[in-house]
Amino acid sequence: MTRKILVVEDDAATAAYLAKGLAEAGYSVETCGNGRDGLFLASEGVFDLIVADRMLPGIDGLAMLSAIRAAGITAPALVLSALGTVDDRIDGLRAGADDYLCKPFSFGELSARVEALMRRTDRSTTSGKPTRINVGDLEIDLLGRQVSRQGRPIALGAREYSILEYLARHAGQVVTRTMMLEKIWNYHFDPGSNVVDVHVGRLRRKLEEGFDSPILHTVRGAGYRLAPAA
């Protein structure tokens, strides 16, 4: 079944760029240029995800979002904004957005976040909390916080474990550096240096050293993906 995404964006060029990119990624996309139309379309309830610009003519993006929520539509929402300071991001998240992305953004970052939001909806609809995750030959025991690969246990530090758990929950998807900073460390600023890369590098060494196939892949220009070697 094709996923449907509603893009509410008043800048025609950005809207076209989003529509094209998301369509290529296999989604069915509908776009509109202002908050009023966005609210109207969204209230049909047929969309799996809403991507909305924060500053829209008519109704402001965040106001539109709260109106949509008030109408009982629970589709996850990703807010795009040219306001990029820490406080703007936090405000956006508090206002009911499920994720927040600053303009200009790389398409890789956007699609990673879109995929993560889609996946989250799927998980919440499938019943029960998983107690273990398997990614190829990697097995993660979520209750005992134990990790093993090909039956061999791998000792991880607390932070390494939380990075792996986050990657495993998004197994097969691209996870960007900023997503990890936000979700694992709860920092909404850009630390500048390659801190995330170093953490992931260490985790990768532990996961892959002594095994013949890679499992934690670097996706150039975007981030990382935990998946069995193709």
């Binding site: 990029g84 300071t85 936090i90 200009p104 790389s106 220009g221």
Partner: peptide
């Protein structure tokens, strides 16, 4: 890819500038 790196750096610089400007006029409510 070099182009992307340079763009990111400029974006970071603008965000930082904005942050500096903001923090000069920010209340303590946060």
């Amino acid at each position: 890819s070099g182009l992307l790196v340079e763009t990111d750096m400029m974006m970071r610089m603008l965000t930082t500038l904005l942050e500096i400007g903001r923090s000069a006029a920010m209340g303590r409510d946060r």
